[in-house]
Amino acid sequence: MAATGRQYDAALSLLDRQVVDPRKLPVANVDDVELETGENGELWVSAILVGPAALGPRIGGLVGRIMTGAAQRLSGRGPGRIPFAIVTDIGSAVTVSVPVADLDVQPLERWLRDHVIQRIPGASNAAE
């Protein structure tokens, strides 16, 4: 990370921050990070992991196991993954360069939208 010009403490500046898209719309929270080892043995952040399946292990205990189990059973897959390459800024929020609609990291949001919210009249109108 030093190569980018500013050092970040991944635990303080990255974990648990809000991820937003270029229009500042919320994408997810940084629930965990994926680390990879480079050629010289240095660790680098390769992806941001999101969703209850990523958060569960960090909560730990029974609550954490329920969270992970429920998320995996409902979505049928592991945590959502946002490649670190699309991160453009780290401030009070983490900004990514891809619009939220093009990121496939919100399975529950999509299911509830298609099966519940869309069926209620006025769902697609902005409040007036």
Partner: peptide, 23 residues
């Protein structure tokens, strides 16, 4: 709840775009 989990929240967007928040 939405801010803890990082969901889209609030009345600025259409309910369709903040499904978890509205549910």
């Amino acid at each position: 709840a939405a801010q803890f989990f990082g969901w889209q929240w609030g009345k600025l967007v259409r309910p369709l775009n903040a499904a978890r928040f509205h549910v």
